[in-house]
Write a protein that binds this DNA or RNA. Sequence first.
DNA 1: ATATGTAATTTGATTAATCAAATATTCTGT
DNA 2: ACAGAATATTTGATTAATCAAATTACATAT
Lengths: 218, 218
Amino acid sequence: MATSTVEDYIKQIYLEQIESADGSVPMGRVANSLGVVPGTATTMVKSLADSELVDYEPRVGVRLTEAGEELALQMLRRHRLIELFLVETLGLDWSEIHEEAEKLEHAISDRVLEQIDALLGHPKVDPHGDPIPTESGNLSNELLKNLCNCDLNQPLHIARITDQSSVFLQFINNSGLMPGVKLTVQEREPAADAITLHFSDGKTLIVGTPAGEKILVE
Amino acid sequence: MATSTVEDYIKQIYLEQIESADGSVPMGRVANSLGVVPGTATTMVKSLADSELVDYEPRVGVRLTEAGEELALQMLRRHRLIELFLVETLGLDWSEIHEEAEKLEHAISDRVLEQIDALLGHPKVDPHGDPIPTESGNLSNELLKNLCNCDLNQPLHIARITDQSSVFLQFINNSGLMPGVKLTVQEREPAADAITLHFSDGKTLIVGTPAGEKILVE
DNA sequence: ATATGTAATTTGATTAATCAAATATTCTGT
DNA sequence: ACAGAATATTTGATTAATCAAATTACATAT
């Protein structure tokens, strides 16, 4: 059985691997994203390699094996389902769920996880709009970006609104953010929780982060 | 911060302490209920004593301090709220929740716990009928009769099951002896070690003395 | 009161995860 | 091409939790 530390390393390496061009993650990144000193990362990664979860090339970097990727996707599924659960069922704020999920993802059994999945209606994305891998480890990659994670200054159009509440739909209507509308994201100000949008007719609009997450674009 | 091992020791010592007459738990019991060899229990208890969670008298036994009891009740609250949550919200079978809760009780934050408590409507007892300590650490401690010492032919209902082992809970489930069920005790046959129960639907059931002692009624 | 058995403690090792600091390797700029 | 900087690895210690096996203390029965 993988310890919770192992699970953390594998998940984090997966996340870094997605970002990296060549699919190999240098040790510095591993150490950094896990919050440990470089020496610790080296030691740990060598032991992950012994358990066939990663391929490790000294002084180059690390890359998940088949088995490692499977475990990573499993952890990602856990993490994201738990995040959604914390928001949907327990009413936590989306800003406070990450650390919670970080702990819970190691403690929850498959049995409980599948109950949560069912309770939430087999959701496809977590509260941040990140895709939730399926039980068999499939991560839909034709995933839509939203206003909070899409590229800046690129021509986009609104594809989907993921909040059916009437207040929100009213706001969507009033602001002209209906599906099909073309726009670009001019800038994001995380501190102020604001996203500046630019429409083809020259108008601009500022929306908050929670709203931006519910607006998927492509 | 208490590690999850410390939390386990403290909770288990609390549980043993309730059973014991003089309030002191011998090392053998500690080792046994934690599933470790005696030497380990000794070492660990000494370290618990260093952190002022228990008073330890060598070759005699261990007893919780004020702080230890507080932690124990906190863990008991966690455990029992989680058990109820697993049954009520996630629809798990009440005979399979103990091990789940055993893991989750260490991972869940106070924040999440209070949300669960609210979601469940601040319940007083868990699915086994065990009382849930309040947030401030109060445990309602009315003593209930069991099937072996209650009055005969009196209308009763099952209040609490004091054996958490899944075999026993399975038996309880199969025999329809869950908390809340109404019945009377028709007769006891000490020689045959048998208690005859009578249900409101006319059915009767015979259980042995050891089982009867684990079924509390009021 | 002595021997025997049971219970508890000590001692010495082990495993997983970590850090600090010394060392080695590779990259980069001139 | 070489010095210096940036990265990575090694080495030696540390902490928490555990076990096996040796030892000690206590209780009790003859």
